[in-house]
Computed example of a mutant assay.
Amino acid sequence: MSEMQIQNVLQQMRQLSQTSGVQNTQPAQPAREPQRAGGVDFQNVLTESLRGVNQVQQEATALQTRFELGDENVSLPQVMTAMNKSSIAFEATNQVRNRLLNAYQEIMRMQV
């Protein structure tokens, strides 16, 4: 997966976490300075993406539980949509992890 494709996946994960409708209840953390001029701190981007995926999964689980308990305000299509969003977000995260692991292994194989 090229760097452009990874950036697209990360952007989609951010959009997914923003459209999930769940607000972040964790206290705000101070922003860290980028490590290079004009760049993005990769650690922060990755951490926020993982938090977003976790949030989507928790929302889907909560909707599923409410539906199973007979909440009349939760419909089956809502549950299925939330579960599919959760599944897609997890799969995208898994693909990014695989690509990062492959890149790390390739770097480690390089001779200095």
Rank of each mutant, 00 (worst) to 15 (best):
M1G: 09
S2T: 10
S2V: 01
E3K: 07
Q5V: 11
Q5G: 09
I6P: 02
V9C: 01
V9S: 09
V9L: 02
L10N: 07
L10K: 03
L10W: 05
L10Y: 04
R14H: 04
L16A: 15
L16W: 03
Q18Y: 13
T19K: 10
T19S: 14
T19W: 01
T19F: 04
T19E: 15
G21T: 05
V22L: 05
V22M: 04
Q23C: 00
N24L: 07
T25P: 11
Q26D: 12
Q26R: 15
P27Q: 13
P27S: 14
P27E: 15
A28H: 10
A28V: 11
P30M: 06
P30I: 00
A31C: 01
A31L: 14
A31I: 09
A31W: 03
R32N: 15
R32A: 15
R32D: 14
R32L: 15
P34N: 06
P34T: 06
Q35F: 12
Q35I: 12
G38H: 07
G38R: 07
G38Y: 08
G38C: 07
G39Q: 13
D41P: 03
D41W: 00
D41V: 01
Q43A: 13
N44I: 09
N44Q: 15
V45T: 07
V45P: 03
L46H: 05
T47E: 11
T47S: 11
T47K: 10
E48S: 10
E48P: 03
L50V: 12
R51T: 13
R51Q: 15
G52M: 03
G52R: 00
G52N: 05
G52D: 03
V53G: 05
N54F: 06
Q55S: 09
V56R: 03
V56N: 03
Q58T: 11
E59K: 15
A60C: 06
T61S: 13
A62P: 02
A62C: 02
A62M: 11
A62S: 14
L63Q: 11
Q64R: 12
Q64E: 15
F67C: 06
E68H: 02
E68G: 11
L69N: 14
L69H: 08
D71P: 11
V74N: 07
S75Q: 07
S75R: 01
S75G: 03
S75H: 04
P77M: 01
Q78L: 06
V79T: 06
M80V: 08
M80Y: 06
A82V: 03
A82T: 03
M83C: 00
S86D: 08
S86I: 04
I88F: 01
A89Q: 05
E91S: 07
A92P: 00
A92C: 02
T93S: 14
T93P: 05
T93H: 02
T93D: 01
Q95P: 03
V96Y: 01
V96C: 00
N98E: 08
N98G: 10
L100Y: 00
L100F: 06
L100R: 04
L100W: 02
L101K: 00
N102L: 13
N102Q: 13
N102M: 08
N102T: 09
A103S: 07
A103L: 10
Y104P: 01
Q105Y: 09
Q105T: 08
E106V: 02
I107R: 12
M108S: 07
R109G: 08
M110G: 14
Q111E: 15
